[in-house]
Amino acid sequence: MANKENLSTPFIYLRSTGEKIPVTKEQHDAFYKEASRIRDKEQNHGRCVCPYRYIWKCDGDCIDCEYHRAGDTLSLDVPTEDGSNDLYNTVSDTAPTMEDVIADRILLEQLFAKLRELDPDADLIIELLGNGLSDRKIAEALGRKQRTFADQMKKYRTELRKIRGY
């Protein structure tokens, strides 16, 4: 009978000390709800490989867990696919240089200036294009016929390509 009482009493298992701490049902449920959320997130990213039979041991503290892995997160401690473990070089190889960003910004400003020369409603057109509207919707907003606006935009795009160089 004493064994049945011990099984029905909710507890929290602390993996670090191996203790089973008696708690109320509400405390138990709240603790393991958060631990499950953390474990699910870690499993989705391939960082938790805890076997199902030991899930009751999971307390959501992944740092010292024997079943915690690197997963899809780059780390300075874990070698990358090319064998290096230098996170800076891995990320910086794909990042644009500051010069590229500045050159793109200058080009964009030149394109906007040319569009403003070609059409007095350029600022509105730029804003509507930035909002993802189609040429038809932009033509409606400007009060122009769709075909006329499409022909104008074709001409504008040809002019803007000259600035870009292709």
Results as ranks from 00 to 15, higher is better:
residue 152 Q to A: 05
residue 165 G to D: 04
residue 87 L to M: 15
residue 33 K to L: 06
residue 95 A to R: 15
residue 60 G to Y: 03
residue 18 G to A: 04
residue 106 I to W: 00
residue 37 R to N: 14
residue 145 K to R: 15
residue 122 A to V: 02
residue 24 T to W: 07
residue 62 C to H: 10
residue 62 C to F: 13
residue 32 Y to F: 12
residue 65 C to W: 01
residue 113 A to P: 01
residue 132 G to D: 04
residue 87 L to S: 01
residue 135 D to L: 05
residue 64 D to I: 08
residue 84 S to D: 11
residue 20 K to H: 15
residue 134 S to V: 11
residue 8 S to D: 15
residue 16 S to Y: 09
residue 111 L to R: 02
residue 78 V to G: 05
residue 82 D to R: 05
residue 143 G to C: 05
residue 25 K to R: 15
residue 14 L to F: 14
residue 98 M to S: 13
residue 61 D to H: 11
residue 148 T to R: 15
residue 52 Y to H: 15
residue 96 P to I: 06
residue 13 Y to M: 06
residue 120 P to S: 08
residue 119 D to G: 00
residue 141 A to H: 11
residue 105 R to S: 02
residue 19 E to Q: 14
residue 46 G to E: 12
residue 113 A to T: 09
residue 124 L to N: 08
residue 53 R to D: 01
residue 87 L to K: 05
residue 110 Q to R: 10
residue 79 P to N: 13
residue 159 E to W: 09
residue 52 Y to D: 12
residue 113 A to F: 11
residue 116 R to S: 05
residue 60 G to N: 07
residue 73 T to G: 03
residue 129 L to G: 01
residue 139 A to H: 05
residue 30 A to T: 11
residue 134 S to D: 08
residue 143 G to P: 04
residue 20 K to F: 11
residue 81 E to H: 09
residue 78 V to W: 05
residue 42 E to K: 07
residue 158 T to M: 11
residue 75 S to G: 12
residue 113 A to D: 12
residue 109 E to K: 10
residue 9 T to W: 06
residue 60 G to S: 04
residue 61 D to K: 08
residue 2 A to S: 14
residue 73 T to F: 07
residue 24 T to Q: 06
residue 49 V to W: 14
residue 133 L to T: 01
residue 59 D to H: 07
residue 116 R to L: 00
residue 111 L to T: 00
residue 85 N to F: 14
residue 60 G to I: 04
residue 114 K to Q: 07
residue 84 S to P: 08
residue 81 E to I: 01
residue 116 R to A: 00
residue 1 M to R: 09
residue 103 A to D: 01
residue 151 D to A: 03
residue 123 D to N: 09
residue 118 L to E: 03
residue 128 L to F: 06
